[in-house]
Amino acid sequence: MDLTTQYVGLELRSPVVASAGPLSQTVDGMKALADGGVGAVVMYSLFEEQLRHEAARVEAMTELHEESFSEAMSYFPTQAANTGGITDRYLELLEQGAEALDIPLIASVNGATHGGWVDVARRMQDAGAAAIELNVYLVPGEVSVAGAEIEERHLEILQGVKDAVKVPVAMKLSPYFSSFGHTAVRLSEAGADGLVLFNRFLQPDVDIEKLEVVPGLELSQPSEARLPRTWIAALRGRVSSSLAATTGVETSDDVVKYILAGADVVMTTSALVRHGAGYAQQLNDGLAGWLARKEMTLEQARGLLAVPADVQADVYERAGYLAALERAKAIYGH
């Protein structure tokens, strides 16, 4: 069964992609993912806070020597001379991984403000990244910030990076916008090659005995796929960007559901962490087996259950909501 897929202009051998996570922290880990059957690997994220910390360190070193004699000016540290830091180690791993893999390696930057994205994106491209994923992890906790300002910040980040690089650029987003569909369309029109739905925000718990907030991040569960699947189905045919599904992938059935909704690729970390890098082949085999059973090609299945392009998505979703309520009444009403 041919599982060849197009994503952000790249040709992948499979729609199953390893999303950013701990398995891509070494070249051996990336090779294990590639050998396991994924169509592409998204490297673990380089964080904006790390970039700011390194920039501050360089500035501090410069200020430390600013009273030195003029003859010593050539010894001032520069950003280019800041070797051995987190950024340099990331770029070195990226370069080694790009050379070692026979599938696309996608670099990832995680941040929330304007700073640092453009320069590091350019360096990622130069290191061999086939594409760049901008993971905008922005939690608007400040109540005075308007929704339009958050949307504009995403657009400014995208535009700055797109102007700086030639490789494809994808945006990994959260669903928490005043009108997510409108935001997705604007990002697509602004040049986003891909939209990755959705980021999982940290949702801490509370220890009622210690009276403490307990941070934590759990692996995703299949039930979490319903929200991104709904939006992928609504956006299919309405944006020119590739659509990547992420969150809630555990079995090949979850992959099939995302494909039917209209996803170009299905990304997972949790399933591969649980079962190992080789589990990707089981996801591929399950998808291929389902397609063979239904006597369909991958392209025939993709978007088969998406919201029809000739109807209003909100009306379509509303009709589904009412049908669900009627079904619930029939089952639980008595």
Rank of each mutant, 00 (worst) to 15 (best):
A277N: 08
T269F: 09
R236V: 00
I208F: 14
V239H: 06
A261G: 13
A277M: 12
S270K: 13
N199P: 09
A261D: 10
Q203P: 00
V213R: 09
S240G: 11
A261W: 02
V185A: 05
M267W: 07
P222S: 08
Y258E: 10
L235S: 01
P222G: 04
Q221S: 09
A192G: 07
S188K: 02
D205Q: 14
L202I: 13
V273Y: 13
L211P: 02
G237W: 05
V239W: 02
L243F: 05
I259W: 10
S220D: 10
Q203H: 11
S270Y: 12
E209Y: 09
G276K: 13
S242C: 06
R229T: 04
L235N: 03
D264N: 11
P204C: 10
V239D: 01
A233S: 10
A225S: 15
V273Q: 15
E224H: 07
S241Q: 01
T251D: 07
V185K: 07
R238G: 04
V206I: 15
S242L: 04
D207R: 13
Q203W: 06
V185P: 00
D254V: 07
T183Q: 15
D253I: 04
N199Q: 04
F198Q: 03
R226W: 03
R236C: 00
T251P: 07
V213C: 10
V249A: 07
K257N: 01
D253E: 12
N199S: 04
L243N: 03
R226G: 00
G262D: 00
S223A: 15
G191N: 07
E212N: 10
Q221N: 08
L217A: 15
S240P: 01
V266D: 03
A244C: 12
T183W: 09
T183K: 10
R229K: 03
R226I: 11
E189S: 11
I208D: 06
G237T: 00
A244F: 03
S240T: 00
G237Q: 02
A184M: 01
V255W: 09
N199E: 03
R200H: 07
E224F: 06
R236G: 00
P204D: 08
T230A: 04
R238H: 00
D264S: 01
E218K: 10
R236K: 02
